[in-house]
Structures are given as structure tokens and as C-alpha cells.
């Protein structure tokens, strides 16, 4: 069966080996020897194919491992830069500091407002004095009025006295002129006090309007500051949340790549199995060079024993014994 398979191969090397086989044995023996030699002559070819596959796989896995390793290092660098969420705490503390600083500004505005209100209160007390001044001016006018009446009576009495009252009449006239002047002055004072009072009332009214506007402005400033801080906190919180999510995702990706790297260790195991197969085929090929057909079975048994002792993995031994296995032993530690 094997001979037929071999004869069907079109590899020129194989055919060449088959045609140049040693013809010193009997006809059937020679044919059998030729067949065995032909089979053994395939070993170097298989060996080279397996070795090529092993090297190509190893090169690819090593390159893949190196690339994964670089990715892991880059992710690690990115994770180190992004930190672990401390920015959220920093942003919160910064917002709190800003809130306190801006509250001081609002307090300063309120203090200015308070000082101005005190000033206006003091101005308002002046209104009380103007009322007193107005009363005093009225009294001056009354005194002038009464003095005027008095001077009229004096003038009448001076006329009754005739020639002897002429001097007194002159005095009465002067007193009358003075009383009129006093009344005019009283009226002037009253008028001026009225003007001052009007001005004070206007100042009070204007201050009330300004105070109301200031109140609104301070309140609006306070509200705007709170809104700005709230927006700042909200945006920093969402940025921190996004950064944290990115950090978690990167960590998860890194963990998965590291897990993939662990899986790539199969190359070391496969490499050892294939290297053993290649070595074993080369060894068998060398031994078979001077083997007759009758010695082939013994050679195969000896070689099988040698193979068994050269295995490094459990699956090689099981495969050799004909026990199928795809299980790879789990990592285990033995302490001595």
C-alpha cells in the first residue's frame, strides 16, 4: 500500500531514488528494499517542510508578540498620562476655590452698597434739620410781622404827639423798614430751606432707585457666578467621567492583549514538538541509509523508543501512545 503511494508520487527526487536503488538482493527483496529506501528518502523532504513551517510560524508569532508588546507599552504610557481620576478631585477643589473667591467679590459689592446706604441715611437726617430751619424762618417772618404792626402803632402814636413826636415817627418808620426786611429775609430763608429739602428728597429717591438696581445687579452677579461654577463643575465632571471611562476601557484592552500574549505561548510548545519531529526524521533518515529491508522493523522499534525518551511535552507522549489529546496542561508551580 505504501509502495503504491510512493510510486504515485511525482517528486523527481523520489523517482530518482527509486530508480537508483541497490539491486544486489533477490528480485522481491530488491523491490522491497527499493520501496523502503524510497520511503526513507522522503524523510528529509518532510523534515525540511516541517522545519520551514516551524520557522515561519515562529517568526510570525515572535513578530506578533513584539507588536502586541509595543501596543501594551503604549497603552501603559497612555494610562500613566491620563492618571486614575484624580483630575475629578482637582477640578472639584478648583471649582470650590473659584466659588469662594467669587463669593468675596459679591461680598465686596454688598459692602459698598451698605456704605452708600449709611451715607444716604446721614443725608436723610439733614431733612430733620431743614424742617427746624423752616420753622425758624417762619418765626423770623412772624417776628417781622409783629414788629411791623408795632411800628405802625408807634407811627400813629407819634402823629398824635404832634411836633414833639416827629423824631419818634422817624424811628417808627425805620423800625417798620427793618421789620419788612426781617420778613423778607425769613421768606428767603424759608424758600432756600425748601430748595435744600427738595434736593435732599431727590437724593433719597435717586438712592432708592440706584439701591434697587444695585440689589438686582448684585443678585444677578451672584446667580451668574453660581451658574458659571455649576457649568464648570458639570463640564469637568463629565470630562472626568469620560477620562475615567477611557481609562477603564484602556485597562480592559491592555488586559485582553496581555491575555492574547499568554495564548501566544503555544508557539514555544509547538516549536518544541516540531523541532523534535524534524530531529527525529533527520535521525531516522541518517540511520536508514545503511539499513536493509530485514532490519527496517527493528530500526523503527528502536527509533520509536528513542523518540519516546526525547519528548518534552505530555501531549507528545500521549500522541505517541495513540491517545488523542488537544488538552494542554495548565500552569502549575512546584516548589522544592
Amino acid at each position: 500500500m505504501l509502495a503504491v503511494d510512493v510510486m504515485e508520487l511525482s517528486d523527481p527526487n523520489v523517482l530518482d531514488v527509486l530508480q537508483t536503488a541497490d539491486g544486489s538482493d533477490s528480485e522481491s527483496g530488491a523491490a522491497q528494499g527499493t520501496t523502503i529506501d524510497g520511503v526513507f528518502s522522503l524523510l528529509p523532504i518532510w523534515s525540511r517542510q516541517v522545519e520551514t513551517s516551524r520557522i515561519q510560524t515562529e517568526d510570525a508569532i515572535v513578530a506578533l508578540t513584539a507588536r502586541f508588546s509595543q501596543i501594551v507599552q503604549r497603552i501603559e504610557a497612555a494610562l500613566n498620562i491620563s492618571g486614575t481620576g484624580s483630575q475629578q478631585t482637582d477640578a472639584h477643589a478648583e471649582a470650590e476655590r473659584s466659588r469662594k473667591d467669587l463669593a468675596l467679590v459679591v461680598d465686596a459689592l454688598k459692602a459698598i452698597q451698605l456704605s452708600r446706604n449709611e451715607l444716604v441715611d446721614q443725608i436723610r437726617t439733614l431733612s430733620n434739620y431743614t424742617e427746624e430751619l423752616h420753622k425758624m424762618a417762619t418765626e423770623v417772618d412772624q417776628i417781622g410781622f409783629r414788629t411791623n404792626i408795632l411800628s405802625l402803632n408807634a407811627a400813629i402814636e407819634a402823629a398824635h404827639a404832634g411836633e414833639s413826636g416827629k423824631g419818634f415817627a422817624v424811628v417808627a418808620t425805620e423800625v417798620r423798614a427793618l421789620s419788612n426786611a426781617a420778613r423778607d429775609t425769613g421768606k428767603q430763608i424759608s424758600k432756600k430751606v425748601g430748595l435744600i429739602n427738595d434736593a435732599l428728597v431727590r437724593i433719597g429717591r435717586t438712592n432708592e432707585e440706584v439701591a434697587a438696581r444695585d440689589d438686582q445687579a448684585v443678585q444677578a452677579s451672584d446667580e451668574r457666578i453660581r451658574a458659571v461654577i455649576a457649568r464648570f463643575e458639570s463640564s469637568t465632571a463629565s470630562m472626568a467621567a469620560a477620562a475615567q471611562q477611557s481609562h477603564q476601557e484602556s485597562s480592559a484592552i491592555k488586559a485582553q492583549i496581555c491575555e492574547s500574549l499568554v495564548q501566544l505561548q503555544f508557539q514555544d510548545r509547538v516549536g518544541q514538538i516540531l523541532a523534535q519531529v524534524v530531529g527525529s526524521m533527520n535521525d531516522l533518515s541518517d540511520k536508514a541509509a545503511n539499513t536493509t529491508a530485514g532490519e527496517a522493523a527493528q530500526l523503527a522499534r528502536q527509533h520509536a523508543d528513542q523518540m519516546m525518551s526525547s519528548y518534552t511535552t505530555e501531549e507528545q507522549k500521549l500522541n505517541h501512545q495513540g491517545i488523542e489529546t488537544n488538552e494542554v496542561g495548565h500552569s502549575a508551580v512546584t516548589f522544592f
Binding site: V262, S331, A332, V333, F336
Partner: peptide
């Protein structure tokens, strides 16, 4: 004179513990 024997494939955590 070895102190421990870890079989491949190994889990990095197992190796680090040893």
C-alpha cells in the same frame, strides 16, 4: 538546585506569585 518548577503555558500571575 532549582527552587521551583513552573510548567508552560504559564499564567503571568502564577509566575509573579512564585
Amino acid at each position: 538546585g532549582a527552587k521551583a518548577w513552573i510548567t508552560k503555558p504559564f499564567q503571568p500571575a502564577v509566575m509573579l506569585e512564585a
